[in-house]
Write a protein that binds this DNA or RNA. Structure first.
Length: 876
RNA sequence: GGGCGAUUAGCUCAGUUGGUUCAGAGCACCUGGUUUACACCCAGGGGGUCAGGAGUUCGAAUCUCUUAUCGCCCACCA
């Protein structure tokens, strides 16, 4: 075996082996199902740290379930990511000199599919490097046939139930992608821009009314100027008009209590086409809607001036024009919230538009109840509030998008009538029935040009992956899925909607639990991004530290819901751990068996102790799993393996230099290690598989990935307690050596001060030998003689003295013991006070009182020992 | 503007229904150690008025109130 573990040499080998054995594939059977659906990454995406974290967690859970003998099924797939992918394709085409507007829908889609075929799904292959044990035979795509059918079915079903409608409303328009966006796709951020004070001449009077606006380029679309009805400054303007600068249009002054008297001059320009509030006011006052901005963000013909200029260029041009005409009073810096498109970062334009909406209110009710009652349980819990708040204030979901890459809306128009159906033929039949015209052909119908919001396919994911709209077999077995692992940032976009879809179509929750991961950030808490260059190359990390090392790094510091501040150092720790594991294996494997030997007292004691300890650790890890405290489970395991197994157990049973080991002892050590491999496997699948194969005396065809996860059982608490004290004694001896500059190899004598407890402890099977071995002692003498030249220490309530040759610094020793004594006296006094307090004794649980009594008597015993020890030292 | 959450060692975080006069890890730091698995290591060590204040309680990092700082979400203020 190599001295250093080489991850590169083994990882690909085992992944291929698992694939070959088809371990990841699952079909319904009589076992309990454990299913997870992957949050589908963008089809053109590449693996980044967020994916690594998220998918490592899913893999851990699925592997654990598999080891427990469940039917584990993790379904992978990708999302067509309508707007994001279309934007990428458009950019790619532009670089080739092709404009989207020059292409037909069919031509564009051809390009898009070609792009998808070339770049799509790369990310899934990258997940394999990470060790993801997905059922690749089930790999799905949100636009594949089954998923597309589900989308159409869902749309038609909602329409037939009256939960879907077309409406003319103010929407969020992305002028760059030239599509409408849902509220959830608009990100609001504080930005500083200018607030322009512009004066409008009052018609027929040589006087002006000054308004404040952040959007002077919409002045051409003004339909009125509004003031508050109770504003004394403007009561005289009732019935008057003002003249819009630049275009000289006459518009009324209206009175509406929406206006805030305090703000600016108390006068507000009303542009119903470009502001949601202005639109509402416009409706109340029956104002004209003048749309001065085109879909691409340029100024429209209706504006009459600056036609064709981009809206931001126009803003500057308007400013200049207003300045020249003397209408610009002044400008000031102004910080306000600006909405930008999540995907293109373009400033969103409010726009009046006819779109398809899902009526959410009826869908929200069961979905809200499910989470409030923990039928769908959130980890961590605090995300419930966020969810609840959103659900209680839910608004209708705009689902149509003016894009080509996506599911085309199954709605056909004929004579102003809309026919919603799963196929054009059905729509035609509907149209024939409705109009009575049996001569209609498909060509007479015109299908809606728009596609559906990406999330309209995503919200069906847990259902559509198991073909819930067509076949019952799989969905009845795998649904509800066991857990969803995703980031909290898409709780509304995705999680909430999946819950709604689950109840709408399956009448059941889509998943039992939701584990929200945090965001992966860098050490300065910045989001990982390409621009900042702070996003490590995921595959490079795997190459450098091994997939196991990286998985360790991702997990060792990522509590559910909390952000993960990623540093490479974490992966380094993972790699070091791999190395530690590897070397422990080398040690065991390297032991020569000495046939003349049987396991000795220490070996037997060590085995019993370690077995007991293992049980408590498994129980603890199980508990951590149940609460999705994976990071803690891993930390527990790490420290158990490193400290208890390597530093203590192996040292206990290690044969003296040059000697062989008893066959039983070696076998036992290997059995423990084999079990460790299984328990650690979900976290570090590759190295555990490799080591398991080296150490396990196995039947042909067995693998760690399919081994049996151990059950927690009760450990022998007496042995546990004895060995823990022995460890304490050994640590004390080492400490004294260290402080007194004694060599580690030098054998010392240990004196144990005679008492009944001491005799029981030291004479317990194997204890003395163990202390002698690990403490590197000549011997242990139980004695009543207290005139020994040495340094004393107390373990629990027993006193020991480490005999040393050189003379002691008695003054320093006394000082230390006195300090310790003072502390113990205070300690005992404080507990004594507590115990003499009736309210404590009466109110505190019996177990607490009992443990306080024990502490009190132990403390008293230590005081006695210390007092005598100080006397003894003084007498030396 | 409304809501939620955080504040514990130099750094990142645990601390699970309130129960020690040792508040735990990892990293970092300090001391000593290497022919006998591992320097990607071993044996030890220092370091914290649990953000400040007040309260409830026999007992508070943990519960309540308050102040401060930070973070996040939601919302149509020009």
């Amino acid at each position: 075996m190599e001295a250093k573990y080489n991850s590169k040499a083994v990882e690909d080998k085992w992944y291929a082996h698992w694939m070959e054995k088809n371990y990841f594939h699952s079909e319904p059977d009589e076992r309990e199902a454990y299913s997870i659906v992957i949050p589908p990454p963008n089809v053109t995406g590449i693996l980044h740290m967020g994916h690594m974290l998220n998918n490592t967690i899913q893999d851990i859970l699925i592997r654990k379930a598999r080891l427990e003998g469940k039917n584990a099924c993790w379904v992978p797939g990708t999302d067509h990511a309508s707007i994001a992918t279309e934007a990428k394709v458009v950019r790619m085409l532009r670089e080739k000199g092709i404009k989207k507007s020059d292409l037909t829908r069919e031509e564009f889609l051809e390009h898009a599919f070609a792009w998808k075929d070339e770049y799509g799904g790369k990310i899934l292959n990258q997940l394999k490097k990470l060790g993801a044990s997905c059922d690749w035979e089930r790999t799905a795509f949100t636009m594949d046939e089954t998923r597309s059918e589900a989308v159409i079915q869902a749309f038609v079903d909602l329409y037939n139930k009256g939960k879907l409608y077309r409406g003319l409303r103010m929407v969020n328009w992305d002028p760059e992608a030239q599509t409408v966006l849902s509220n959830e796709e608009v990100l609001h951020k504080e930005e500083t821009s200018l607030l322009y004070h512009v004066k409008y001449q009052i018609e027929g009077v040589n006087d002006y009314l000054t308004i404040a606006t952040t959007r002077p380029e919409t002045i051409m679309g003004d339909s009125a100027v509004a003031v508050h009805p109770d504003d004394p400054r403007y009561t005289h303007l009732k019935g008057k008009n003002v003249i819009v600068p630049m275009v000289d249009r006459v518009i009324p002054i209206i009175f509406d209590d929406y206006v805030d008297i305090e703000f600016g001059t108390g006068a507000l320009k009303i542009t119903p086409a470009h502001d949601i509030n202005d639109y509402e006011i416009g409706k109340r006052h029956k104002l004209e809607v003048i749309d001065v901005i085109n879909d691409d963000g340029t100024i429209s013909d209706a504006a009459k001036v600056f036609v064709g200029k981009d809206r931001f260029e126009a803003r500057i041009l308007v400013k200049i024009a207003l300045k020249e005409s003397g209408n610009l009073v002044d400008t000031e810096n102004y910080t306000h919230s600006v909405g930008r498109s999540e995907r293109t970062n373009a400033v969103v334009e409010p726009k009046l538009s006819l779109q398809w909406y899902v009526n959410m209110e009826s869908l929200a009710k069961p979905a809200l109840d499910a989470v409030v009652s923990d039928e769908v349980e959130f980890f961590p819990k605090n995300q419930k509030n966020l969810y609840k708040h959103w659900m209680e204030n839910i608004r209708d979901w705009c689902i149509s998008r003016q894009l080509w890459w996506g599911h085309r809306i199954p709605a056909w128009f004929y004579n102003e009538e809309v026919y919603v159906a799963t196929t054009a033929e059905e729509a035609l039949n509907q149209a024939k029935a409705k109009t009575g015209n049996t001569d209609l052909t498909i060509d007479d119908l015109k299908q809606d040009e728009d596609v559906l919001d990406t999330w309209f396919s995503s919200w069906l994911w847990p259902i559509s992956l198991f073909d819930g709209f067509k076949s019952r077999e799989e969905i009845d077995y795998y649904y509800p899925t066991s857990v969803l692992v995703t980031g909290w940032d898409i709780i509304f976009l995705w999680v909430a909607r999946m819950v709604m879809a689950g109840y709408e179509w399956e009448n059941k929750r889509p998943f039992n639990d939701v584990y929200f991961t945090g965001m992966v950030r860098d050490k300065q808490r910045r989001k990982m991004s390409k621009q900042l260059g702070n996003s490590p190359d995921a595959l490079g990390l795997i190459d450098q530290y091994g997939a196991d090392g990286v998985r360790f790094g991702m997990l060792s510091s990522s509590p559910a819901g909390g952000d993960l501040l990623f540093e490479e150092k974490l992966c380094e720790q993972g790699r070091n751990f791999s190395n530690k594991l590897w070397n422990a294996l080398r040690l065991i494997e390297g032991w020569e068996i000495d046939k003349s030997k049987n396991s000795n007292q220490i070996d037997d004691l060590a085995s019993k102790w370690f077995d007991a300890k293992f049980s408590t650790v498994i129980a603890e890890i199980d508990k951590n799993y149940k609460e999705y405290r994976l990071s803690e489970a891993l930390t527990t395991l790490y420290s158990f393996i490193w400290n208890d197994y390597c530093s203590w157990y192996l040292e206990m049973i290690k044969p003296p230099y040059g000697e062989g080991i008893a066959a039983d002892t070696k076998t036992q050590a290997k059995k423990f290690y084999e079990k460790i491999c299984t328990v650690l496997h979900p976290f570090m699948p590759f190295i555990t598989e490799e080591m398991w194969h080296i150490i396990k005396e196995r039947n042909e065809g067995e693998d760690c990935i399919m081994s049996t996860y151990p059950q927690a059982k009760y450990g022998n608490s007496e042995i546990l307690s004895q060995v823990e004290q022995a460890k304490d004694v050994i640590s004390n001896i080492r400490d004294i050596r260290n402080k007194n500059g004694l060599k580690m190899k030098e054998e010392l004598s240990l004196f144990a001060i005679k008492s009944t407890e001491m005799e029981v402890f030291v004479n317990a099977e194997g204890i003395e030998a163990m202390i002698v071995k690990l403490g590197v002692l000549k011997d242990i003498t139980i004695t009543a003689d207290d005139k020994i030249n040495g340094v004393s220490f107390i373990s629990r309530t027993e006193q020991f003295i480490v005999g040393i040759e050189q003379s002691l610094d008695i003054g320093a020793e006394i000082e230390e013991k006195e300090k310790e004594l003072k502390y113990q006296i205070g300690f005992v006094a404080s507990i004594g006070k507590k115990l003499s307090n009736e309210r404590f004794v009466n109110n505190a649980p019996e177990s607490v009182v009992e443990s306080e009594r024990k502490k009190h008597s132990d403390g008293t015993a230590r005081i006695k020992i210390l007092t005598e020890e100080i006397e003894r030292l003084k007498g030396m």
